[in-house]
Amino acid sequence: MTTLALPRLALTAGEPAGVGPELLVRLAATSLAANFVAITDRALLERAATRCGASLQLIDDDGEAITRRLPGTLRVRHVPLVMTEVPGQPDPRNARHVLDTLSEAANGCMAGRYAAVVTAPLQKSSINDAGIRFSGHTEFFAEQSRADVVMMLASPELRVALATTHLPLHAVSAAIDAVSLERTLRIVHQELCAKFGFDAPRIAVLGLNPHAGESGHIGREEIDTIIPVMNKLRQEGMQLLGPLPADTAFVPAQRERYDAVLAMYHDQALPVLKSEAFDRTVNITLGLPFIRTSVDHGTALDLASTGKADPSSLIAAARMALDLVTRSTTHKNP
């Protein structure tokens, strides 16, 4: 019997002064069947392991396939820090290190060296303080791969994609136009097929306004933009439900009718998801030419070096990446 090689998952540690390095150490201690390759500074991981009181064996990554990984072992592709980290105190001088780890992960995935990338949280402000314009992981990977992307957050029970992401509420309506909404729905549909294995995914689309506009009496965005786009894509065979009022879209009877939700803005649906499964929610970037998952929390600077950081979200992100790798491989080779 031939033993299959373990999927190679690239791990980035994010902000060196945050909890990311410690989370990678905790992930390495699990028995997950993956060939984890940490793209970061080797000594940073060693210091994180010491702070956690965890046993960690680091192995220089040689690119070779492995069929078994012992808990507590982690392969490393060394990207040196500029300055030794001080837990809880981000140093803009390490901004280039952080971006270099992301570039290696993205380029490695596109070159086939890694099956997916799993990212720990970074500190956007520290990168911007270094004089480097930076919006976040999602935008960085989109630019690296020249792809149109959509943010999705998923738990075992619910998948929510976003038509807009980190915008002030007053800017949301203007950001939802027919072109962007159609592009977003096409990406969500395509990725539900390619990465999640659905043959004919059912997507619930939320209205922007209360009661989905109530036939134009509480706003016209549904009538003028959302419904025409949905009707156009329905004629192509997409199964689109709605637009649904957001206040009833997540009741059990509705959930049985769809496989994923497209919300119009960040806080329209994510409070529901996070209140139900905060430690099991994973951030997924749809539309990339590779699989990328991430934790759904920040750098937790106040917890850095305390050994109290909860690795549940990173472990969930790694599990999701493994699942998506398996599903996408099966989809390509039925």
Rank of each mutant, 00 (worst) to 15 (best):
L192M: 15
Q235A: 15
S135Y: 05
N107H: 15
R47I: 06
E276K: 10
M238C: 06
A304C: 14
V261F: 04
A54W: 10
Y265T: 06
D148G: 07
I176H: 03
L6K: 05
H217T: 15
E157F: 01
T3M: 10
T50H: 13
T330K: 12
G136R: 08
G112E: 01
P92H: 13
V251H: 14
K274D: 12
D100P: 04
N231W: 00
H217F: 11
P121T: 09
H189V: 05
R93M: 04
I59C: 07
L206V: 11
D60E: 15
T30P: 05
D177F: 09
Q254I: 08
R183T: 10
A38V: 07
D199K: 11
D199E: 13
R26D: 12
R26C: 12
A49Y: 09
G298E: 06
T40N: 00
R51L: 11
A10S: 07
S135R: 08
T285L: 05
L185A: 05
K124Y: 12
P311F: 09
I127G: 08
A304R: 14
A43F: 10
Q57G: 11
N35Y: 02
A194N: 09
Q254E: 12
S126P: 08
D302N: 13
G136H: 07
T3N: 08
G287L: 08
L273M: 06
V86C: 13
D279M: 03
D91I: 04
P201A: 02
P90R: 04
A174Y: 02
T165Y: 05
A111F: 01
R186L: 10
D267Y: 11
E104N: 02
A10C: 09
P168C: 06
H137Y: 07
G72F: 09
E276P: 00
A204K: 08
L286T: 00
I315L: 04
F140L: 04
A130W: 09
V118N: 01
L32F: 02
R47A: 15
S125Y: 06
G88Q: 11
D267Q: 10
A5C: 08
H170Y: 12
A130Y: 11
R75D: 03
P334N: 14
Q144H: 13
A17T: 14
G207H: 08
M238H: 14
S180C: 00
S126T: 15
G207R: 08
L4I: 02
P21N: 10
I227E: 07
R113N: 03
D61W: 12
S313G: 03
T138C: 04
A200Q: 14
D41G: 10
T138G: 03
A204V: 13
Q190Y: 04
R77Q: 10
A34D: 00
D177I: 07
S328T: 14
L153G: 06
L23C: 01
F278W: 13
Q235H: 13
L288R: 00
A178H: 03
L56Y: 05
V150P: 11
L303G: 07
S305D: 15
T67C: 13
L244N: 11
R113M: 00
G219H: 01
I218P: 06
L102F: 15
S126G: 11
H297F: 04
P243F: 04
S55C: 11
D323F: 01
K332A: 15
Y265Q: 06
A5P: 12
E46S: 14
A43V: 14
P92T: 14
G197N: 06
A154K: 05
H170S: 10
V325W: 00
A130P: 08
A194V: 03
A194L: 08
G307K: 12
T326R: 14
